[in-house]
Write a protein that binds this DNA or RNA. Sequence first.
RNA 1: GCACCGAUAGCUCAACUGGAUAGAGCAACAGCCUUCUAAGUUGUAGGUUGAAGGUUCAAGUCCUUCUCGGUGUACCA
Length: 577
Amino acid sequence: MSIETLKKQIKEGISTAIEKAFEVKFESEIKLEIPPEEQNSDFAFACFPLSKILRNAPFKIASQIAENFPETDFLEEVKAVGPFLNFNLKKESFFKTAIEQILEEGESFGSTDFGEKQKFLVEYSSPTTNKPLHLGHIRNNFLGISISRILKMAGYEVETVCLYNDRGIQICKSMLYYEKFENGNTPEKAGMKPDHYVGDLYVKFSKLEKEQPELTEEVQEVLQKWEDGDEATIALWEKMSDWVYEGYNATYKRLGSSFDYTQFESDTYKLGKEISLKGLEKGVFFQKEDSSIWIDLTNEGLDEKLVVRKDGTTVYITQDFGTAAERSEKINFDKMIYIVGNEQEYHFQVLFKILKKYGFGWADECFHLSYGMVDLPSGKMKSREGTVVDADKLLDELKNIAKEKMRTDNIEMNETEIEELAEAIGHGAISFFILKVHPNKRILFNPAESVDFQGMTGTYLQYSHTRICSILKKFGKNLPMEVDFSLLAEPEEVAILRLISNFPEIVKEAAIGQNPSKIASYSYLVAKNFSKFYDRHSVLSLENESQIQARIALLQAVKITLANSLYLLGIKAVEKM
RNA sequence: GCACCGAUAGCUCAACUGGAUAGAGCAACAGCCUUCUAAGUUGUAGGUUGAAGGUUCAAGUCCUUCUCGGUGUACCA
């Protein structure tokens, strides 16, 4: 017995009632809805879509179905409210079914087989390796972490991949500045986090370049040397790249990012060029008089697009052929999603069309999850102008605020625990702040006001979780095999039951829409309903031990649901705060 | 110019993908701690969903036009 079977039985009942009342075979999919709270019902069915098929007014259909609904042992009542049908389950069996299922499934509660084990490859983060990560990357990483977890819970097999854009003119700028002015310096000697050190050189170079335009030519020479494989240049490039990765890894760890695969543009661009040449043979691409290679997309409503320059060097999009092809070969995915900002929409439109034309059938299974920019009140973040919100600094800042606000009087904690907790709260706050917004939308980030610890925030979710933990810990016993679920009947308890039993459905919706904000609003609702319950009812001080047990069972189920949705948001479910 | 995205309460966001009276948080005001953590909770106030048409039994959601904001339209990445 599961929540799913309960719903299935209702759907079957509806079909049967329709057939009985209208004498037609009814086979189309029935969609149960969650009724508005005021209706005080568990499930609802809207009869409007039936009115054409059954040639009857919706309100009439509703009452007919209600009248002809078969006898069941799990339903309390079926009532027609205008054109809607509202269903109320017998509360004892609803509580029993849902809670037992949740407690049994534990960490995997929320999982469905919706994705049919198809392999979903998720690319995210993919930074340009000449500067530290900033707020824009934070949004990207949080989306990547969350979406990959959501897809997994929805029944896909998920692999993550990060592509490092590790070649090109930007990294050469940092290299040139280093050679000219840094005199064998290291991040360690400079006392800086290594990616910040490299990023600093880039900013310094950009400033200098404005005064000394001849530097631009010098950088081109460095790039040329790099392309020619000049030993000293490659060695310097490797040294500086390693510094950047060292820095990134620290930040990724804080963010919660992890990747099953990594790729480097410095590898894949060669493969991209090979594909371009092969495509030329196949007649997919064509060559102009100056020997540059192009593809004609005018039939697809796009333009002609250059893929290899006349001097044989490749452009940005070329490496993406190689990157994608390598993935298909090595990882063999069914679907692939690129989590990249919306400024690159056209780029991906072109890329997918080219892959398709080249003959990669899987191009149809590639998607661009395009998310809105994160802007500051002062406008766009520009790394060259130093107006970026740095990822590490932001995390530090939030951690410090969390630490200041922490009340250590009530709870026993040692130094390490306090540090970890402050980190978790700061991280949770920014994570929720970003993920609660639909990916399509641009985020305006006001550092002074944006991230809060009160109201609809990550902190609130964590706080609710700790309150549950605290009760469970004080209870301190195992529940008996048989819990008397008939003792749960308070409106606040029923409201929670309805919510948590809908979790798998929400996960599925979030997966379909590739939209973590669904999970964010949902988890807030769960926490909110728990808080209401907490405020109005006590658990441990009850006289009746059986009633305590019933409520404990409910709270265990709430804890699991809340913890699982926090996991999907990449937020740590802490036990005390 | 063309293409894509956004516009919902003073501010920041939701709205089960077309369904029941458009909901939260922040900010403002007024209550609630001898009781499992007050980073909580209850209430008040706040709306012509950017504008105008259209489709539908039903539109914040779909179609058309317009306004404002963003992004793209590179032999940059």
